Simulated assay, not measured.
Amino acid sequence: MDASSSITRTVVVNAPRSAVWAAITDPDKISQWFGQRTSLDLSVGGEAAFTWDEHGTARAVVTELDEPNAFGFRWAADIDADPVIGNSTLVRFTLSEHAAGTELTVVETGFDTLDRDVADQKQAREANVQGWHAELDELVAYLHGVKA
């Protein structure tokens, strides 16, 4: 996988894996750190919507569910669009035990499969690099204030 077509970020959270799992799969908890509103049918093939007041709604479909190890979804790169091949990327969260709590890795792939020119693919990736940096910082801050 070409590094320019994917994003990987790992954080260590001082919280048990069950708390991190809940924070990435429970719509009420997701809405505390990832946008303002979330709807999620937590089943493979289930639909999800992540809404930011300032950006709109990113629609997604759950692609993987392996509690408490991995959670994945395909989401549309375009706001208010259904995620299909050509307009979406794959996001995968993996959780593992860590001496300090839980290691959480997010990998987003498929920017090179977007039906856009290369410059627009790179721009979409860079926007999400910044987005995952900010959002995972918010997740860590949220979980450090939550007791399991």
Score class of each variant (00 low, 15 high):
Ile85Glu: 14
Trp52Ile: 05
Ala76Asn: 02
His55Val: 10
Glu126Gly: 05
Gly45Pro: 14
Glu126Val: 14
Ala99Asp: 15
Ser39Tyr: 15
Ser18Gln: 12
Thr94Ile: 00
His55Gln: 11
Arg116His: 14
Ser39Met: 15
Trp33Thr: 06
Gly131Gln: 07
Pro68Val: 03
Thr102Met: 01
Thr25Gln: 03
Thr113Glu: 13
Pro83Met: 02
Thr57Lys: 15
Asn69Pro: 06
Asp80Phe: 04
Glu108His: 04
Val11Thr: 09
Val61Ala: 02
Thr109Asp: 13
Asp115Cys: 05
Val62Phe: 03
Thr102Ile: 04
Ile24Trp: 02
Thr8Met: 04
Gly56Tyr: 03
Val62Thr: 13
Ala49Thr: 08
Ser39Ile: 13
Ala100Glu: 15
Gly56Gln: 06
Gly145Glu: 10
Ala48Phe: 05
Asn69Ile: 01
Arg59His: 15
Phe50Ile: 15
His98Cys: 00
Glu103Asp: 04
Ile85Asp: 13
Glu108Trp: 01
Gly101Thr: 07
Asp82Arg: 08
Asp137Cys: 04
Asp2Gln: 14
Val118Tyr: 09
Asn14Lys: 12
Asp41Cys: 08
Leu139Asp: 06
Gln130Cys: 06
Ile24Asp: 01
Gly46Leu: 05
Ser4Ile: 10
Ile85Gln: 13
Val84Gln: 02
Ala134Trp: 13
Val44Asn: 04
Pro68Thr: 08
Ala99Ile: 12
Thr57Glu: 12
Ala76Phe: 05
Ala141Glu: 14
His144Tyr: 06
Asp66Ala: 07
Ala15His: 01
Tyr142Lys: 02
Arg37Lys: 14
Ala3Arg: 11
Asp82Thr: 09
Glu47Cys: 09
Leu65Lys: 07
Thr8Asn: 02
Ala70Pro: 06
Thr109Gly: 07
Val84Tyr: 03
Trp75Val: 03
Leu40Glu: 04
Glu103Asn: 01
Ala127Val: 12
Asp115Asn: 11
His98Met: 01
Ser88Thr: 07
Asp28Val: 06
Leu114Ala: 02
Leu139Met: 05
Val44Glu: 11
Thr89Gly: 06
Ser31Ala: 15
Ala60Thr: 09
Asp26Gly: 12
Trp52Asn: 11
Val107Gly: 02
Gly35Ser: 01
Gly110Met: 05
Met1Gly: 15
Glu135Arg: 12
Val118Phe: 10
Thr51Pro: 06
Ser6Arg: 11
Leu90Gln: 11
Ala49Arg: 08
Leu90Trp: 04
Val107Trp: 00
Asp137Gly: 09
Ser43Asp: 13
Gln36Thr: 13
Trp75Pro: 00
Ala60Trp: 01
Leu136His: 03
Trp52Tyr: 15
Ala48Ile: 13
Leu139Gln: 05
Ala81Met: 10
Ser88Trp: 12
Asp80Pro: 05
Ile79Cys: 04
Asp53His: 09
Leu95Ile: 00
Val62Gly: 07
Ala141Val: 06
Glu54Ala: 14
Asp82Met: 07
Val140Tyr: 00
Pro83Cys: 03
Glu97Met: 06
Gln36Tyr: 12
Met1Glu: 10
Ala22Glu: 14
Thr8Asp: 02
Asp53Trp: 04
Leu40Asp: 04
Lys147Leu: 08
Ala58Val: 11
Pro68Met: 05
Thr102Arg: 00
Gly101Cys: 04
Thr57Asn: 10
Gly45Met: 11
Asp112Thr: 08
Gly110Thr: 05
Glu97His: 10
Asp115Met: 07
Val106Met: 00
Ser6Tyr: 09
Val91Lys: 00
Asp41Phe: 03
Gly72Cys: 10
Gly145His: 07
